[in-house]
Amino acid sequence: MASRLLARALRETHLIQKAGVASYRAKIGNREIVGYGFNGQPSYMDRTDFPMPAIRFKETTPDIQALREKEKGDWRKLSIEEKKALYRASFCQTFAEIQAPTGEWKSIIGITLIAVSLSLWVYMAMKIWVYRPLPSTFTEERRQAQLRRMIDLQVNPIEGLASKWDYEKNDWKK
């Protein structure tokens, strides 16, 4: 009984895998599936951390097919141009081309500086035309008077402001 269940499960898994590949054929066209790939799906990505894409870069043409047949023999008989053509059929870029600087950092810094300057202009406009002036209680004399009143009223005498005031010397505790 267990062997029948196992065989059935394996058949269903195989059918599901075949159905998955068939649904991807419309997306990948005539390109050869050569491995598992980065995420287990037949897709092509040039990545330095995972250099083995699941499918080849170009579709198989008669020229490339002839080169692949020739490739199965002695590689010393292949010319440099044929080796390059085989490489470019499988991969879009070399590692040097992938890692080459693109200059994208310049646009990122430019956009960031523009956003910062716009936000500063918006802040200045809000400060001038939207916000009211600060109340008179924010002046230095008023804040000192408020502090003195809190000490006189002994606000929070255990752990707060009044606990740090020496009432005998009329000065802050040291």
Rank of each mutant, 00 (worst) to 15 (best):
102 T>N: 08
164 K>V: 03
99 Q>W: 01
71 E>R: 15
103 G>M: 00
129 W>C: 03
21 V>G: 05
165 W>D: 02
80 I>R: 10
27 K>M: 02
55 I>V: 15
149 R>E: 08
17 Q>I: 05
40 G>W: 03
50 F>G: 07
150 M>D: 06
36 Y>G: 08
98 I>A: 03
20 G>Q: 11
159 E>P: 00
157 P>F: 00
39 N>E: 13
92 C>R: 15
144 Q>H: 09
43 S>H: 13
173 K>G: 04
101 P>E: 13
149 R>P: 00
100 A>F: 03
114 I>S: 11
30 N>S: 11
97 E>S: 09
134 L>F: 03
110 G>K: 14
68 R>C: 06
134 L>W: 03
49 D>V: 10
141 E>W: 01
142 R>F: 04
107 S>Q: 13
53 P>K: 01
43 S>E: 14
6 L>P: 01
28 I>M: 06
46 D>K: 07
13 T>F: 04
118 L>S: 13
41 Q>D: 07
110 G>H: 10
174 K>V: 13
90 S>Y: 06
169 K>Y: 04
126 M>G: 14
45 M>S: 15
28 I>G: 03
95 F>I: 15
163 S>R: 02
75 W>S: 15
156 N>W: 00
55 I>G: 03
11 R>F: 08
171 D>G: 11
39 N>Q: 08
152 D>V: 02
116 V>S: 09
42 P>F: 03
17 Q>M: 08
32 E>P: 03
112 T>A: 07
35 G>Q: 04
28 I>W: 02
81 E>Y: 06
11 R>A: 14
46 D>S: 15
96 A>P: 02
90 S>H: 10
70 K>I: 07
137 T>H: 01
108 I>D: 04
73 G>Y: 05
8 R>E: 11
45 M>F: 12
44 Y>F: 05
161 L>Y: 00
130 V>K: 08
100 A>T: 09
107 S>V: 10
43 S>A: 15
172 W>G: 07
61 T>M: 01
148 R>C: 02
95 F>R: 15
21 V>D: 06
30 N>E: 05
161 L>D: 04
118 L>C: 12
26 A>N: 07
18 K>R: 13
39 N>K: 10
34 V>P: 00
68 R>H: 08
171 D>W: 04
11 R>H: 14
147 L>V: 14
22 A>G: 08
143 R>A: 12
35 G>K: 05
96 A>Q: 12
139 T>W: 00
120 L>E: 07
29 G>Y: 02
101 P>A: 15
147 L>N: 02
78 L>D: 11
13 T>N: 10
83 K>L: 11
142 R>G: 01
20 G>L: 06
41 Q>I: 10
144 Q>M: 06
9 A>P: 00
90 S>R: 13
27 K>L: 11
71 E>T: 05
99 Q>M: 09
145 A>W: 00
115 A>M: 11
167 Y>P: 00
63 D>P: 01
134 L>A: 14
